[in-house]
Design a protein around this nucleic acid. Structure first.
Lengths: 233, 233
DNA sequence: TGTATGAAGTGCTATATAACATGCAAAGGT
DNA sequence: ACCTTTGCATGTTATATAGCACTTCATACA
């Protein structure tokens, strides 16, 4: 991690950010008390057990958040995109981190210190409500995944993951290629399966012409079919 | 469901309630705009797809919240105890309910209407922060369960569920019997396994003298051993 | 050019667990 | 006291998927 001074207006002024509800005054307070850091692809942003020092906002890049389970097996619980928070769960629960965050691409992360966050939260009920809504949505997602990952069969789980990645990161210019390049291992860790099974099932999907694969590049050829596979379980 | 007029001070004044952070004035507002309902064991409080009409608080009784998965298979995502909220996720996410709530015992539920909830939230940053903290904790729990239910083996999953039930509802006076009486089916739906496997594995635990079973009554004889089974996966 | 390294892909086997069938006991209503 | 229903228990069978061993391929590096 390098502590570059980056002008990270992106987190604060981006219309997608929850900070849009803030007054210019409140935004200024944040602007004064935040630091930015740069992480190269593969670098750890925080680790399970670390104490959260502030609110992290992903200004640019892509980040996976995963938990280590039985025998060190990774389960990806969230994929972050700009502009979005990371590590905020532990901060607000007043716990140490219960998951690890790793940059999948080169990423810029800015941090607003704990005290400033709470100070703004006490002043802005709008921001509080936004965060409550964000948490409620995220919790719904997590509950959904619990059911999906435990009940759907391998094909259903993989199909759902591909749709999830498409929904989260969107398409490249060709309107087919999913705009994220994960290793087969990461795809497996996202879908609760072994790497072998991820490889095998991706190949099957490609044979069935539901998707096309070219290394880490995944094109969705038939979204309707993929959705059907996902729903069937 | 019967619409009795019950004096449901319990939700508001109970020291365990998040409402303790409110001023007497704010508590009065809630007192004036809430209604109480009584549900018999087995009755549905809300269903997947229903629109949340307010904030529900379980004043007395026990409630399971579950999602329907592949082939109508239930997955219990939460067990509520007094005094705690139910159905608040959908309310704050501004979605329809994504899970169903059923009373496991005769239960009293009071409802504070939507507008009042938001009115108080806008005034009380303390309450907002409490709710943010509650959500963050709940999300941590959910993420944890995702990993547990997908990665642990049957014995580990069941052991963890039993410990979870003990932690949530506590013991009877004998300091051994878990203070909730679930059907084998509910135990299975909590632990992501079939009813047969729940029965089988409970019997095995009883043979190993980790627990003792007498119908729906479950005694934890050796908590340390149970925790070890849970950790091993 | 040769070597090393890591990821992608394939086939086989072992196993955990779901699904099914059946029997028994207890609870609850008439 | 009877019948009916519901829950609990157990054994057998079928199947999905994890685990392992191995090959192929691409890229990096000396």
């Amino acid at each position: 991690m390098q502590d570059r001074i980056i002008n990270c207006e992106n987190c604060i002024d981006n219309p997608k950010s929850v900070f849009t509800v803030l007054t210019p005054k409140e935004k200024d307070i944040i602007r004064k008390s935040h630091t930015c850091s740069f992480y190269k692809k593969g670098e750890i942003i925080f680790k399970e057990g670390d104490k959260p020092m502030g609110l992290l906002c992903l200004a640019d890049g892509k980040v996976k958040i995963f938990k280590e389970g039985v025998g060190g097996r990774e389960q990806i619980v969230r994929m972050a995109k700009p502009v979005g928070f990371i590590g905020y769960r532990a901060l607000f629960a007043e716990e140490h981190h219960t998951a690890t965050a790793v940059a999948i691409e080169d990423s810029t992360v800015c941090q607003i210190d704990r005290e400033t966050v709470y100070r703004i939260l006490r002043e802005s009920s709008d921001l509080s409500l936004s965060i409550i809504r964000a948490f409620a949505t995220e919790l719904g997602f997590s509950n959904n995944r619990t059911v999906t990952l435990t009940q759907k069969h391998i094909r259903g789980r993989l199909a759902e993951s591909l749709i999830f990645l498409k929904d989260t990161y969107g398409y490249e210019e060709d309107a087919q290629t999913i705009k994220i390049y994960l290793s087969r291992e990461d795809v497996a860790n996202l879908s609760n399966m072994t790497t072998s099974n991820a490889i095998r099932t991706l190949s099957t999907f490609a044979q069935e012409e539901v998707i096309a694969i070219d290394g880490r590049k995944i094109k969705i050829l038939d979204l309707v079919k993929l959705e059907r596979i996902s729903e069937l379980g």
